[in-house]
Amino acid sequence: MRASEERAAVQLRDDRLLLAQFAQQLRRRAVQDTYAGLHGQDVGLAMAAVFDSLSVTLDQVPDQVRRDALAAARRERTGPDGPNDPRGRTRKGLTSGFGH
């Protein structure tokens, strides 16, 4: 396997994982909303199913659909302003450092 093919395979695997995690998060939120007494969780569950389907068939979907789905998942993971967004889930708070 060529190096470029290996990179593409790794990227596809990572993208699939990101979409599957996003679907799981959408599903979890829909269930939590149900416990909170909110209505409309069927939309969240439907969107989770869509992202699950995309993650399985990612190499077969059109490029624009793939880019948009990945952008939505990345936005959810890191926040609206990208990796430097303090609202992102990957960043830790100020009190999580050494000595806290």
Score class of each variant (00 low, 15 high):
69 A>Q: 01
76 E>S: 11
82 G>E: 02
44 G>P: 03
56 V>R: 14
34 T>K: 11
53 S>D: 14
7 R>N: 07
51 F>L: 03
87 R>D: 15
14 D>N: 14
92 K>R: 14
39 H>P: 03
47 M>S: 07
4 S>R: 09
70 L>M: 01
81 D>Q: 12
59 D>G: 12
24 Q>L: 14
4 S>T: 10
21 Q>K: 06
58 L>A: 08
38 L>A: 06
31 V>Q: 10
11 Q>T: 09
75 R>Q: 08
82 G>Q: 05
94 L>T: 07
49 A>H: 06
8 A>E: 12
45 L>H: 08
17 L>Y: 06
20 A>T: 01
41 Q>V: 05
69 A>I: 00
89 R>G: 15
70 L>S: 02
50 V>E: 09
80 P>Q: 13
73 A>R: 00
68 D>G: 04
75 R>A: 05
58 L>P: 06
96 S>C: 14
14 D>C: 02
97 G>W: 10
100 H>W: 14
98 F>N: 12
46 A>R: 15
51 F>S: 00
31 V>M: 13
35 Y>F: 15
70 L>T: 01
41 Q>E: 09
42 D>W: 09
46 A>G: 13
94 L>H: 09
41 Q>Y: 08
64 Q>N: 10
21 Q>H: 05
98 F>M: 11
83 P>I: 04
44 G>S: 04
40 G>L: 00
62 P>G: 06
16 R>E: 05
50 V>C: 08
27 R>D: 11
17 L>A: 11
49 A>N: 09
24 Q>Y: 08
89 R>F: 12
49 A>V: 03
98 F>Q: 11
81 D>T: 12
30 A>F: 05
25 Q>I: 05
59 D>Q: 13
69 A>E: 00
15 D>C: 02
39 H>A: 07
10 V>H: 14
34 T>N: 10
100 H>S: 12
17 L>E: 08
98 F>L: 15
57 T>V: 10
14 D>T: 10
87 R>V: 11
13 R>D: 15
92 K>E: 12
83 P>T: 04
41 Q>P: 02
78 T>Y: 15
79 G>K: 02
76 E>D: 13
41 Q>T: 05
89 R>A: 14
78 T>W: 14
98 F>R: 14
60 Q>S: 12
22 F>V: 00
73 A>T: 01
18 L>F: 00
94 L>N: 11
82 G>Y: 04
71 A>V: 02
68 D>R: 09
12 L>V: 06
71 A>E: 08
1 M>D: 10
43 V>T: 11
90 T>L: 15
94 L>V: 10
25 Q>Y: 09
76 E>Q: 11
36 A>V: 03
85 D>T: 03
22 F>Y: 01
7 R>C: 03
84 N>Q: 15
29 R>M: 13
77 R>D: 04
66 R>D: 02
84 N>E: 15
21 Q>N: 07
51 F>W: 00
58 L>W: 04
79 G>I: 03
19 L>R: 00
29 R>S: 10
46 A>E: 10
47 M>Y: 07
28 R>I: 07
31 V>C: 09
11 Q>H: 08
44 G>I: 05
55 S>Q: 05
35 Y>E: 12
99 G>Y: 08
86 P>D: 01
62 P>L: 05
70 L>K: 02
38 L>Q: 03
5 E>K: 04
86 P>E: 04
3 A>I: 13
23 A>W: 00
27 R>H: 12
68 D>E: 11
